[in-house]
Computed example of a mutant assay.
Amino acid sequence: MPRFTGLQAAIVDLDGTLVDTLGDFVVALNAALGELALPPLPAAVVERLVGKGSEYLVRSALREAGGADSLYEAAWDAYQRHYGAVNGRHAAVYPGAQQGLQVLREAGLRLACVTNKPTGFARDLLQQKGLLAYFGHVFGGDAFERKKPDPLPLLEACRALGSAPARTLVIGDSANDAAAARAAGSPVLLVGYGYNHGQPVRAVDADGFLDSMAAVAGWL
């Protein structure tokens, strides 16, 4: 296994990487769709839609349920309300996730969480699950003008961390994370258990894959 040398920092994704939040998404989305008299979506469909930000999730879920695009504002408002109520209730930290963060911190790396989830929801979730203290910065999908897979969030996180992108390890669970890292010039590892829009994650261009976040120790 190759090892990364000279790393200064690490940027870690949230949903599908640190915490399994699919249950929260399913409950909040289906509650919002129910308010609009639309049918609920199965978890397998919701999982395929996760990862590109809340706006994309709500628009896509609305279409999957047969709702008109004109219902988007009402669906968005309902989703935000319901997600705020259930955030973290149906979510669980993945085995090895906290150990992986501890490994990164003990390696002397500065840590940021960069997610397409809204920042407020992300911070609340990390706090609930006992992970917030590991991070010097948390940036959500509303923090910058563009979201992953655009490299902007990673580049801005590197700026905040005071690290060079080439010396900042990115850890995520999807092609979005990998594409953003490649465009930013950062090394990237992907976990094999998260959400990748229904596609095999090991087919994604990445430097390596982790069965558990704890396995990052073998790369440092």
Rank of each mutant, 00 (worst) to 15 (best):
P2A: 07
F4G: 12
G6E: 10
D15T: 09
G16T: 04
T17Q: 08
V19E: 01
V19M: 01
D20P: 00
T21C: 05
L22M: 06
G23N: 02
A28L: 02
L29P: 02
L29Y: 07
A31V: 01
A31Q: 15
G34I: 07
E35D: 15
L36K: 10
A37S: 15
A37P: 04
P39R: 11
P39S: 13
P40L: 13
L41I: 10
L41K: 11
P42V: 13
A43I: 08
A43K: 11
V46N: 00
E47D: 13
R48Y: 09
Y56L: 10
L57Y: 09
L57M: 07
L57E: 02
L57W: 07
V58G: 05
L62A: 11
L62F: 12
R63K: 13
A65I: 08
A65L: 07
D69C: 04
D69V: 07
S70G: 12
L71R: 14
L71K: 02
E73H: 01
E73V: 04
E73K: 02
D77T: 14
Y79W: 07
R81N: 03
R81Y: 08
R81I: 02
Y83W: 06
R89I: 00
H90W: 06
H90S: 01
A92E: 15
V93P: 00
Y94L: 00
Y94K: 00
Y94C: 00
P95F: 04
Q98C: 10
G100F: 05
L101A: 14
L104N: 09
E106Q: 14
A107M: 03
A107N: 01
L111V: 04
V114G: 08
N116G: 11
K117T: 05
P118I: 05
G120E: 15
R123F: 05
L125N: 00
L125K: 00
G130K: 09
L131I: 08
L132H: 05
L132S: 06
Y134I: 02
Y134N: 06
Y134C: 05
G136K: 05
H137R: 12
G141Y: 07
A143I: 06
R146V: 08
K148W: 03
P149V: 13
L152H: 07
P153T: 12
P153Q: 10
L155N: 10
E156F: 06
A157P: 07
C158D: 03
R159D: 12
L161V: 09
L161W: 11
G162A: 14
A164I: 01
P165T: 09
P165S: 08
R167W: 04
L169G: 10
I171V: 15
I171W: 08
N176P: 03
D177W: 06
A178Y: 12
A178L: 14
A179V: 07
A180P: 00
P187R: 09
G192Y: 00
Y193W: 11
G194W: 06
G198L: 01
P200F: 09
R202I: 02
A203R: 14
V204Y: 02
G208Q: 12
F209V: 12
L210P: 14
D211W: 10
A215Y: 01
A217T: 03
W219R: 09
